[in-house]
Nucleic acid binder design. Structure first.
Length: 405
RNA sequence: GCGUCGGUGGUAGAGUGGUCAAUUACAACAGACUGUAAAUCUGUCGCCUUCGGGCUACGAAGGUUCGAAUCCUUCCCGACGCA
């Protein structure tokens, strides 16, 4: 529970038998979140291409902004003066902010490279046995022991972000749930580096917690478990972070697609059961089933909106690329039985036309559907837990989804 | 009718004797995207291929040259100017 036991509350309604999964309710100052839940990503205080009504109509319960991006622009003090991120962006519901820890990776080790935090074991080029020295490679984030030096991608200015600074910014942003400052490591790093980084993240977690206490307020702070793909490190991190007095936990860092489920399981078997867990940056359909089965309560992912803007659309039979020739004269909705605004009113032909014509509405309609698809998939999974039908639903869904993708 | 300038791959538009199957952009086609440097990025884009290469191409037909999208001749077409 929370340290005061009043501003943040998480209740588990039902647990899955023979697994770590559960359905619950997470209370925040801006409303309850029924978990498991999918969090829409709104990095710069906007879910790209959607207005809050559209985000809400897609079934979204909570939106996640980003510390680093909002600190650079428009500035956390402006967001504070506007009344906090929710008021600023006209999102009345619960909000979260990520700490900037992901930018340590995306603007650091991953900068200018074709690296994802998710690797495939089947792609040997991404699994490097020894840490290669690429210290000369340009990057916008450089890690020190005390914090991270960021070179702004907007104007080149330098900003040193420490755990204390990240928490201070997040308090200004004023989300209901905030995250400790961590280092999201690259999957290309070797074990020794993962261990060094983990120690650093653990120290930063303690410092984040101290700063959070010092600043007071009614937001909840989640600590972040790291450790990459290594079992010992993941367990070590779960023990360490789990023992700190956080209100909940993020599971961050890099994974291999093939063994993500075991990594999540290692962690959630150790984290205190009564606190919520957020699997950071994960959100493909198969990953949602995996995470929920292994005890994850919250997910966020850019996939629905980014894929949508880029013309890839989720369907129960796998993803489709709407610009493909075959959809130009397909006058059916994306999914006939989908309840989203896009499917209620538009055909694949029309959406394909919008994409070919580079119309703004294209990304909006596709994002509406994708967000609805993912948010409601998680809602259905939640209901299947309540109905004792999780495993049946998982098989039924994934059989159709994977078969065609 | 005379003169001038033009006719290049789906389009626009480079190239003006060899390194040109032809820069580039757009279109087209396919793909990628997992705590958003992202309404972005990558690949293909004459035909055939055992991926080494082979073949046909820059309005048409001839010609000059070791070699032509590039030079010459004639013809066809377009724009403009003069009659």
């Amino acid at each position: 529970m929370t340290r005061e036991g009043e501003f943040m509350n998480f209740q588990i309604e039902k647990k899955l038998k023979n697994s770590l999964g559960r359905a619950g309710v997470l209370k925040t100052p801006h409303g309850d979140i029924l978990t498991p839940a999918f969090v829409a990503v709104g990095t710069k205080a906007t879910v790209k291409s959607l207005n809050p009504e559209q985000v809400r109509e897609a079934g979204t319960q909570v939106v996640l902004g980003n510390t680093y991006h909002l600190y650079l622009q428009p500035g956390d003090e402006i967001v504070r003066d506007a009344g906090g991120i929710g008021k600023f962006m006209n999102w009345p519901g619960p909000t979260m902010t990520d700490s900037g820890g992901f930018q340590v990776f995306s603007l650091g080790a991953a900068y200018g490279k074709d690296i994802s935090k998710i690797t495939k074991i089947t792609d040997p080029s991404l699994l490097i046995p020894e840490r290669f020295d690429d210290s000369d490679a340009p990057r916008l984030a450089k890690i020190g022991q005390d914090g991270v030096s960021f070179k702004s991608h907007l104007d080149g200015s330098i900003h040193y972000i420490t755990p204390e600074k990240s928490i201070e910014i997040q308090h200004n942003l004023g989300a209901d749930i905030i995250f400790a400052f961590d280092e999201c490591t690259s999957p290309a790093e070797d074990l020794q580096y993962q261990e060094e980084a983990l120690e650093r993240t653990h120290r930063w977690a303690e410092r984040s917690l101290i700063e959070h206490r010092k600043l007071g307020g009614d937001s909840a702070l989640f600590g972040i478990v790291q450790g990459g793909r290594d079992e010992n490190l993941r367990k070590k991190s779960a023990k360490f972070i789990g023992n700190l007095d956080f209100d909940g936990f993020g599971i961050g860092g890099s994974f291999a697609k093939e063994d993500m489920s075991t990594a999540v399981k290692w962690v959630n078997e150790i984290l205190p059961e009564e606190k919520p867990r957020h699997l950071l940056g994960i959100g493909e359909p198969e990953d949602l089933f995996m995470g929920i089965e292994n005890g994850v309560d919250l997910f966020d992912c850019v996939a629905p909106t980014r894929l949508g803007r880029n013309g890839t659309i989720y369907t129960k039979s796998g993803k489709i690329i709407i610009m493909n020739t075959k959809f130009r004269n397909d006058f059916e909705p994306i999914e006939k039985d989908c309840g989203c605004y896009t499917c209620q009113h538009y055909t694949k032909s029309y959406i394909a036309h919008l994409f070919h014509g580079k119309e703004m509405l294209a990304g909006t309609l596709a994002s509406i559907h994708n967000l609805y698809f993912i948010v409601n998939l998680v809602k259905k999974i939640r209901q299947s837990i309540l109905d004792d039908k999780f495993f049946e639903f998982k098989k039924e869904f994934l059989d159709q989804y994977i078969k065609n993708s």
